[in-house]
Design a protein around this nucleic acid. Structure first.
Lengths: 336, 336
DNA sequence: TGACCCTTTGTTATCGATAACATCTCGAAA
DNA sequence: TTTCGAGATGTTATCGATAACAAAGGGTCA
């Protein structure tokens, strides 16, 4: 039926509207520079022909790809997904398209993704965390595009950063448990390869227990994946090594949920026998039994701020090297 | 220091290696057509100069963008995120880049995204669900690229589909509860604008209760967002309208978790007083109290199969109009 | 009325790669 | 020795848009 062969080009639209191709281009990019009559005819031609401009060609000639690259450890982790959702949404409205890559917490993969994705000549780059492959710095420097690091606040960001202090989170949780009268505070950590954000929370914990004269009760698990089940296993380890523990800080809500589940199975009462705190404030944290005390960081806010920062930097052509602290919030619930 | 001004082009690499630009291009695309000597010199030049090919230019001249577009309702919903993760991963390995857009469950937004994203001249398109805006069909037909619909199995897919039967899920859960001796089976639904997948599960439920001679006990909530808290409210409605209910099918695990939480607060025993089943098998489903009986669908599997289907269709240049049923699995746990 | 300027539109060159075709070299077969 | 062909490399045209510049039309002001 519809024997359409080739996609319609700007040339066809121009002929249909009886103007030159340049006028069509202007209607699309700078409508105010075209007289109303021609503009209307062009718009009608576009509509009639179902013309969709080829952004590839536009990008090549204007040297503006309207792409932004974002690299995150995993797409199916809700905090990062929230960030991508908001980032993408704000960028879309400004006419930019997000290219997402996931690094699986491996710096080599991040490096290879940076290299590949720079091929699309993005106008901005978003990286997660403060640690990157040495080659990444070189590539980014050469590409001369604004870079924003998220979900952390590096001491010396490449350009900008949008995040919060993971160290301070560790301090906050430890002080909170101490104020609640806990004196044997444990810390359960799943080490993420090439991601030291959990490690920083641990450092905050360690600094605080030292300051308060409390014992260091730490259990660690080796490699990803971080599952809820792992939380249960870590609790077992912790209880075996330090039976006296009266509370535990989990490096993420994921682990905390597993801990709660394990406590239930062992008949251990929360918070009476063991106080539990997590990190992330996943939606489920307010529906666990008991509801989970945790730290909330708005992934959406990080996404929005990051988008705004990038758009400003692109427009200004400069890199103000700004650090934006989105802060965090302790949410107290029944588990403490 | 590093006063790099312009990005390096293929031309620079060619000069450095003492060959023509075309030879460089060949080394990158068809290495076997270049003599070993030149190939090595070119590769070394690329390395020395840190050359990253401009994929925009390549796409324009070869008419192969290596982009695949995927539209999902939300990025921060774990089943879809799983799908995107796997889809992206398989496509990356084959040299394709995924462009993700989120529709917020609104057909108009889907339509506008399709239009915009077709501007990048993708070589394939992934849509969620069976319902689309009329204009979408026109645009896709004109663009002549393979289309895969996911997370459902339309009777007449546009090209291919990778999913499972939501109707059958509804049947399966209802029959299961019936077999467990439940006779007053409720159904809690959050209507998603422009997404009838939940509605189909409901239809499966309705058909089954009718066949078994059971009452229809349905509660619905209006608009998104679907939160766990909404599950609690829906349970209240259900109990008010049908106090005799002895079990409830939730259209998603999200609602089911809210239901469990509400039961706990009301002192209602699960499963003795009320059996609860969900849909999705989120990770947390095995750590709720009690653990949740639910239906598992592998988002990852959908992603992988979709990628494979697209790659096949792109290579073959045809659209075999295949439907792939990834099936679902009932996971029985303590809530029933 | 003429110089000048602003608005509107068109023409030409260019973005950085790939496709298609042309050329060259060298060895095998006649 | 001549011919033919396969393999390796180079040359030219092209992809579909935008930038930069050029030109045409129309009104203002002295």
């Amino acid at each position: 039926m519809n024997g359409n062969d080739k996609p319609i080009r700007m040339q066809e639209v121009a002929e249909y509207a009886g103007v030159s191709i340049m006028t069509v281009s202007r209607v699309l990019r700078k409508p105010e520079k075209v007289a109303e009559g021609s503009r209307k005819r062009v718009l009608q031609a576009i509509d009639a022909l179902g013309y969709v401009p080829d952004l590839t060609a536009g990008a090549l000639s204007s040297k503006r790809s309207h792409f932004i690259v974002a690299l995150i450890p995993m797409m199916n982790s809700s905090p990062f997904a929230d960030t991508m959702q908001s980032l993408s949404s704000v960028l879309n409205e400004a006419g930019y398209q997000l290219l997402i890559g996931s690094t699986d917490y491996a710096l080599e993969k991040e490096e290879s993704l940076v290299r590949t994705l720079l091929g699309h000549r993005p106008q901005g780059m978003v990286l997660t965390g403060r640690q990157h492959h040495p080659e990444v710095y070189k590539h980014l420097k050469r590409s001369q595009i604004p870079v924003v690091e998220i979900w952390d606040l590096p001491d010396e960001p490449i350009d900008g950063a949008v995040g919060y202090s993971n160290f301070d989170c560790g301090v906050c949780l430890t002080e909170f448990l101490h104020a609640k009268g806990r004196r044997k505070i444990g810390f359960a950590l799943a080490e993420m390869r090439d991601d030291d954000r959990g490690e920083q929370r641990l450092q905050g914990y360690l600094a605080t227990v030292q300051r308060l004269g409390l014992p260091e009760l730490v259990v660690r698990a080796g490699q990803p994946p971080v599952t809820m089940e792992l939380g249960g296993r870590l609790l077992q380890d912790l209880l075996q090594q330090h039976p006296e523990v009266d509370s535990v800080i989990c490096v993420s809500d994921t682990l905390a949920i597993g801990v709660l589940s394990e406590c239930r199975q062992q008949g251990r009462r929360v918070p009476e026998d063991l106080a539990v705190v997590g990190f992330g404030d996943f939606e489920v944290a307010q529906h666990t039994s008991p509801p989970l005390t945790t730290i909330r960081v708005s992934g959406h806010e990080i996404g929005r701020q990051t988008a705004q920062l990038l758009l400003n930097q692109i427009q200004a052509g400069s890199s103000p090297r700004s650090k934006i602290d989105v802060t965090f919030q302790l949410i107290e619930r029944g588990s403490t």
